[in-house]
Design a protein around this nucleic acid. Sequence first.
DNA 1: GGTATCGTCAACCGTTTGGTTGAATATGGC
DNA 2: GCCATATTCAACCAAACGGTTGACGATACC
Lengths: 111, 111
Amino acid sequence: MTDPLDLAFAALSDATRRRILTMLLEDDMAVTDVAEPFEMSLAAISKHLAILTRAGLISQEKRGRVKWCKLEPDALRAASVWMQGFGQFEPINLDAFERFLESELSEDRLP
Amino acid sequence: MTDPLDLAFAALSDATRRRILTMLLEDDMAVTDVAEPFEMSLAAISKHLAILTRAGLISQEKRGRVKWCKLEPDALRAASVWMQGFGQFEPINLDAFERFLESELSEDRLP
DNA sequence: GGTATCGTCAACCGTTTGGTTGAATATGGC
DNA sequence: GCCATATTCAACCAAACGGTTGACGATACC
């Protein structure tokens, strides 16, 4: 699977990774801090970050001993552009986005 | 994986399935006709169509002995809306879409 | 130098994916 | 009834996924 669009969509198909992306929307974060809210091992999060990096959705830069993760919206834009051709979507429906984002977050958070 | 967004993005992560969607953009098609341009078995295409159906991206209706496949843009819209929050994408960049669609198609077609 | 912290690597495990083939199940035409 | 067409089912396979654990390599701190 080497097609960039394959990689982007596959990376987006996991709720953990989507949640990581929404976290990075706020600010750049270190790997340990990304992992903190999740109920899984640091190694698992490290793998998720590698998948997001390979898909170009984030970049990682090591400064000292911490590795900083940064959102890279270009790959997401490519995927978004691909989808624009279907269904004449409303340009930006922020209300609907807000609703989806909330349902995503509430689903993923611990009960 | 039962989250609708998981299903939609996973379904989109395969070039064969994306190509099927672009074909259905033109018109509804029977399973056999969907399968015709691909170099894989009918059963494989049938599975791809099942994945697209489960994701809600298409619907299938049997009339007589042929099963018609129809694009269902709502699930795609949900995925698109999710992505709108990242990077303040241009509302609709049709040039870029055109380029991506072409590169997709040229990649997928037989040489 | 010694120790704690940050992050990845390697090996393993069970499940899912994307494909194959061959048989089976409609339905339609004559 | 008989044959062809349309589609799926079932069993199989190799590879990828998502997670675990434990060891390991860097870097920072004192």
